[in-house]
Design a protein around this nucleic acid. Sequence first.
DNA 1: ACCTGAACACCGTTCAAGT
DNA 2: ACCTGAACACCGTTCAAGT
Lengths: 174, 174
Amino acid sequence: MRADAQRNYDRLVAAARSAFAEQGADAALDDIAQRAGVGNATLYRHFPTRQALLEAVFRDHIDALCHRAGELTAAPSPGAALKEWLGEVIAYGSAERGLAAALGEDGSSCRAAVFEAAQGLLTRAQEAGEVRREVSVGQVFKLVNAVALVTETEPDPAGQAAGLLDLVFHGLAA
Amino acid sequence: MRADAQRNYDRLVAAARSAFAEQGADAALDDIAQRAGVGNATLYRHFPTRQALLEAVFRDHIDALCHRAGELTAAPSPGAALKEWLGEVIAYGSAERGLAAALGEDGSSCRAAVFEAAQGLLTRAQEAGEVRREVSVGQVFKLVNAVALVTETEPDPAGQAAGLLDLVFHGLAA
DNA sequence: ACCTGAACACCGTTCAAGT
DNA sequence: ACCTGAACACCGTTCAAGT
């Protein structure tokens, strides 16, 4: 990749990160290009879809979450580990508006990575008899994602999300 | 209200109903006006916000849900009654895309009516010891609304929603 | 190769002009 | 009063022209 292309790429991601944080996942793309000091078409060259841009912005977070899932797989209580991890997923989601959108979309590569990480924690919690057998990762994730989506526009998103997650998790328990 | 104004109002609601059903809650307003055979500005005269139009379209459903809540208050098992009712809320939501959007918005008058109806069922279920005391109507509704939102774009929304509602309801249980 | 601004299409919103 | 189409502003997407 040419040096100027790399520079533009980085600027776009940085501009998008702050735009998404301020205005949500539907921030205007032209605005993002302008903040980055770049022509709008350049944004499209690098990121053919808004989804691609969202994924680039949140890739670090996603990676961190996946890594964290690996750590928690070794935790003593599998049920508590799952709950802890879901809480962190939501915390990221409400801290940085738009993450939920990035994860919710179907084709997303982020989604695949996070799903895989979640599967490990879920299976372990189920084998320990702490979570109901018939629950699927897809269901867990839909609920968690739903909680993040519904709370992100509310006042005190973290507090609201925590309360709802308590209920959701109680629902998962065996 | 003048006769032609009334006629236009009705046409707009009918056109909006089918447009929302086909294209979701973000159907183009110009398109709706055109289907109704009415100038686009007339739509704004009658419905200053998209929210107002959504509420007009779903008012019948909302009224039916509120009425149903009244009936279920007399049902033998308060817990089952609440679950039954939440299931019907979601069924409306996934049958007619956009209802969830109509209910999710904060200022919505629909929201107030439905909240009140839900409060009766919830309180009764709590007093019967079937639902956890610390759960609020707001929380129940956020979860149910979240389930409707997350499932409405999936294949088999009704089935998915039913599975998630099972989990959610299990989480509410005392 | 990569970048750019302009052009186009689309949609929401407002307004001056009509009846 | 109420309705209308046109005008405007905004945003996403594409393209011909530049380096």
